[in-house]
Amino acid sequence: MDFFNVLILVLDSTVRLSVPLLLACLAGLYSERSGIFDIGLEGKMLAGAFASGAAAAVSGSAWVGLAAAILVSVFLALVHGFASITSRGNQIVSGVAINFVAAGATIILGQAWFSQGGRTPLLTGDGRFGALNLPFAAELRDVPIIGQIYSELLSGHSLLVYFAFFMVPFTWWVLFRTRFGLRLRAVGENPAAVDTAGISVAWLRYRAVICTGILTGVAGTYLALAQNAGFVKDMTAGKGFIALAALIFAKWRPVPAMFACLLFGFLDALSIRLQGSPLPLIGKVPVQFMQALPYILTVILLAGFIGKAIPPRAGGVPYVKER
């Protein structure tokens, strides 16, 4: 049973660690499916985390924090949208720029407003999204296996965790069962087809980047108000890029995106759990190798050695009417 307990613990932290990845990954999915590449997920998530931490600290309400995060993150998404859609600039360059602005601004403003070395004040109570206990979690705790899975693994997470996992089928539904989703997928593949069908390419893409902004805002909020008790500088620590890797890994599809994020979250949880202790059969695996594994796997995937990841055909290219 000891192994089982450890497994439950590792899986539980897998869920917690994969949530920010999942939210950011789904965020990127909306943008990239519409043909706007976004390597600025990291920056938007970070800005969202800071905004939520700051607003929650001032207002004492996690919900105000969430709203602030979404607002700030959507603003940055619109900057990216303006550069990529209206100004037809280089999407990669724009994403890089947003990452830097967010990295610098969160620290400067955090220090100026709260003077805690770039942190926002420690949050308690209503300032955070605390754990929710599912019904009967306590009662079922003693039921072997199933009870443990229910009460330890499924119950006791913050609202945002459930939201993140709810977003997976929801995104699938939006993408494949709504008019917006149909058009979104179409514009990322062939914007000319959308244009000749009488739909505005620009407005459609702007809506897509707004979706991205909302979800990165939630991802940031999760980091600052659920996983932690406030904003810490550089708290995204590359998660935006792992999310991007997961998106490629999932070939831009929502359900595989969830599994890719869980896989990367699991690798993270495992490396924390192992802390350099030896694995059966393999022996001692350096912690750093585990940390690099998501990136290594993505490179191997991109090289086409495990199936080919083909991005949306119109991705990265500003739409100009054919002359």
């Binding site: 600039g89 360059v93 720029a97 830097f100 602005v101 610098g104 620290i107 220090q111 100026a112």
Partner: peptide, 26 residues
Amino acid sequence: MPAISRDMIVIIQGLVILFAGALENL
């Protein structure tokens, strides 16, 4: 000015990339 740490440079760097790069045609 203790309120302005060195991270200000990172912001400027980002803004330079934004305006000289992504928005160069603005």
